[in-house]
Computed example of a mutant assay.
Amino acid sequence: MGVIDSEWWALWWPWLVVWAATAACCAVLLRYGLIRAGRLRRRRRGGRTVHGMCFFLHEQRVMDLYQQGGFSAALEQEVADRINVTSGVGLRARFGLGGGKANRDVTKERVTAYIQHSTPITVIRLLMDTMRKEDVVVHADLTTGSLEPNRALAEILRERGASDRVALTEVMSEFVSVTGRFTARSADGGDIVLRAPYGDGRPRAHVKITCEAAGVREGFQNAEYADEEEFQARCLGKVRTWNRTRGELTLDPIAIFR
């Protein structure tokens, strides 16, 4: 019996190695395919945030959100997810050389280094993608009057038995992403004040955003928008106050893009 076993192994062990290697390669390919499929599904649901050109960034608020706002773990996972796409390809290419473990270690080091050396302009782009995935932002389009609640606000509305329609003036505790047609004016100290009308009331309501001079990015000059010229912009921030008498909704901006 021992002789038969020896002869059987001598005959079949090379094929068993080939089959095992083939199965492992198929498993890696399947994992990579599932990752790609998942990313494609996310892209069809909206994909990553299209930011545009950033012309105002409140760096302190950005870093406070990253460090204290509860997004650091999700942000680190977002970076890891992006890096792991290339690490999966590397694992497949070097599978025969046994380089899988080393590749994962390198990925971990890259994620850690990326987070530790991140800058506000880098963080805001990843942060906005992370906030979108976590569904913590209320989206408002001032030109169409549409408002899309986030998950938390939608849950509150359901508990109250209210409809999904809610006024922007009622969104006081959530992050908001507001898109509209703005005008710009200089203010004291070099600040720039943006305003955008919305709604059908009389007098018409408007959003007011004060861009502190220290956060205005190079290249954005008020002179470009003189004489009440309008431009399309999108602001990520939080509602500070609503003045019913003036019809003025004041936003504290985190970042503004056009």
Rank of each mutant, 00 (worst) to 15 (best):
N84P: 03
L75C: 05
D5K: 12
V137Q: 00
V239E: 06
R94P: 02
G46S: 04
K108P: 00
T169E: 12
N243E: 11
A226T: 10
Y114Q: 13
T122N: 14
S146C: 04
D105A: 14
R165M: 06
A24E: 05
E134P: 03
Q232V: 08
A214H: 13
K208W: 05
L40G: 02
T119F: 04
L236M: 06
G99L: 07
A233N: 00
G215A: 07
V171P: 00
M53Y: 12
A167P: 02
L40E: 07
L65D: 03
T112N: 13
G99H: 06
D135I: 12
A214N: 12
V3R: 15
V18M: 08
N222C: 11
R92S: 08
K238P: 01
E159G: 10
E174N: 13
I156H: 05
G215E: 02
D164A: 06
R36T: 06
V176S: 01
N150K: 04
R36A: 12
Y66D: 01
D81K: 14
R48F: 13
L153G: 00
Q221W: 12
D129Q: 07
A213H: 14
D227W: 10
L34M: 09
P149L: 05
S87G: 14
T179W: 07
F55G: 01
D200M: 15
K108A: 11
A213N: 13
L127F: 06
Y225P: 00
I4T: 09
R158P: 04
E228V: 12
R160S: 09
V62Y: 00
E155N: 12
N84Y: 13
L147V: 15
T241Q: 13
D5C: 09
Q232K: 08
T130G: 04
T49Q: 10
P203G: 03
W242S: 08
T179G: 06
H206Y: 14
R94E: 13
S6Q: 11
A213M: 06
D191L: 06
Q60A: 14
P203N: 01
C25A: 15
S118I: 08
A154D: 07
E76G: 14
L29P: 02
L40R: 08
C211A: 07
E155C: 08
T22Q: 09
V239M: 15
G52N: 03
A102L: 06
V111Q: 01
R104T: 10
L251Y: 02
N150I: 10
Q232M: 09
R244S: 09
E170N: 08
V79M: 09
R82L: 12
E109R: 14
R61M: 09
S87F: 15
E228A: 14
E148C: 10
T122A: 11
T144Y: 09
L16S: 06
G90N: 15
T143K: 11
D135K: 04
R31G: 06
I4L: 11
S72R: 15
V178R: 00
R92Q: 14
G100I: 07
V171R: 04
L153A: 03
D252Q: 09
R246P: 01
V216T: 10
H51W: 11
R158H: 10
T210Q: 03
A223E: 10
G90D: 09
L168Q: 02
Y114A: 08
V62N: 01
F182W: 07
R104G: 03
V106D: 01
V17N: 11
V111E: 00
T144S: 15
A205V: 15
L30F: 10
R39A: 07
G99C: 11
L40Q: 08
A74C: 12
L194W: 00
S87Y: 14
